[in-house]
């Protein structure tokens, strides 16, 4: 694995001011993205995945949103706290972004071609005609047939899969180093999903892209990612290589997620569901966010927040404390630290 770090996020915290108080959407999140690799962020919906990545580029609505702590450096350059003007040198140019629902993420009253050309013109100062040529090339790259005709069409004239391809073309138009894909395939059906993932893979190879892939589908993670971060209630609860996460899961929540995965469980009688629901982010529990649903809950979990244990493979669970009772999960973290 290449050790060159492209993007480093440290201790990111984001909250939203709402009528009912402030929502601690992201708490103390740190991760590193290495060149040419894919980092997957997984977790239930509402756990703060989108807020995490969107706050990097200042895309969360502010107010009500507010980044309260942390740093995010793209090759050493700090992104957080930049003004809109300074951020625009990164947005779309060095960091591209793909959103879940391409239909709503594209302007309904502007042609696909214009929307892609716009970012080219803004960032590279291309002429409109040159940008048009480039759009045709880009649409070809993402395997949209008849790009000359398609670029003059509007989003509503595209199918879901084609739209997502156009969205990808838009995000890679300026040859960014980092591509953030926020649930790019969730809204698509399975065959299209596979095609899009394949496209992303080939683009990663040809462009040397570093990808942050957000998903709640462990199947996608297994296929695409080298590194995985598991989020729960605004925090990263486990983080490590894809093998660490799948074969040496060290957090009860990850175990629960795996059990709920349809592919693996298909031969079993039924899918496992994690009982209960995530905690209220208005008032995150003083202790571990997962304690109320955890099958291994201990005395201290309720009121003491666990730190991240481990080095390259990390888990936020008291079971890994030296004084904790011996538990199979603990061996996992030790095993991966050794390897």
């Amino acid at each position: 694995m290449s050790s060159e770090v492209v993007l480093a996020v440290d201790n990111l915290a984001v909250e939203f001011a709402t009528w009912g108080g402030s929502v601690q959407a992201v708490r103390d999140v740190s991760f590193k993205l290495h060149k040419g690799t894919t980092l997957a962020i997984v977790g239930e919906s509402g756990c703060g995945k989108s807020v995490t990545v969107q706050s990097l580029l200042g895309l969360i609505p502010m107010p009500p949103g507010r980044i309260t702590a942390g740093s995010a450096r793209l090759r050493g350059e700090e992104l957080l706290g930049l003004g809109a003007k300074a951020l625009n040198r990164y947005r779309g140019k060095r960091i591209g972004m793909i959103f879940q629902d391409a239909m709503s993420a594209l302007n309904p009253t502007m042609t696909i071609g214009d929307q892609i050309a716009e970012t080219l013109i803004v960032h590279t100062g291309m002429s409109a005609a040159a940008a048009r040529q480039e759009v045709i090339t880009l649409l070809g790259q993402v395997q949209i047939p008849e790009p000359e005709r398609r670029m003059r069409q509007y989003p509503f004239e595209f199918s879901g899969g084609m739209l997502q391809r156009a969205m990808i073309a838009l995000s890679i138009a300026c040859q960014p180093e980092v591509l953030i894909a926020d649930e790019p395939t969730t809204a698509l059906d399975v065959t299209i999903q596979a095609q899009i993932l394949q496209l992303l893979e080939s683009l990663q190879k040809s462009h040397g892209l570093s990808i942050i892939l957000i998903t709640h589908d462990l199947g996608v993670v297994a296929r695409m990612a080298q590194e995985v971060a598991v989020m729960y209630a605004g925090q990263i609860v486990e983080q490590g290589s894809v093998d660490d996460i799948f074969y040496r899961s060290a957090h009860p929540y990850t175990l629960g997620l795996k059990a709920a995965m349809p592919g693996k469980a298909a031969h079993k009688a039924q899918l496992q569901v994690i009982p209960g629901s995530p905690p209220d982010l208005f008032a995150p529990p003083a202790g571990c966010g997962f304690h109320a649903r955890c099958p291994h809950v201990m005395q201290l979990c309720e009121s003491n927040a666990p730190p991240l244990f481990g080095t390259t493979h990390q888990a936020r669970c008291w079971l890994h404390h030296a004084a904790a009772p011996v538990h199979p999960l603990r061996q996992q973290l030790i095993a991966s630290s050794g390897s």
Partner: peptide
Amino acid sequence: PEDFALLAQRPSLH
């Protein structure tokens, strides 16, 4: 050490 005593689950707490 006594903090690590296992507890019964209370899933509906929240």
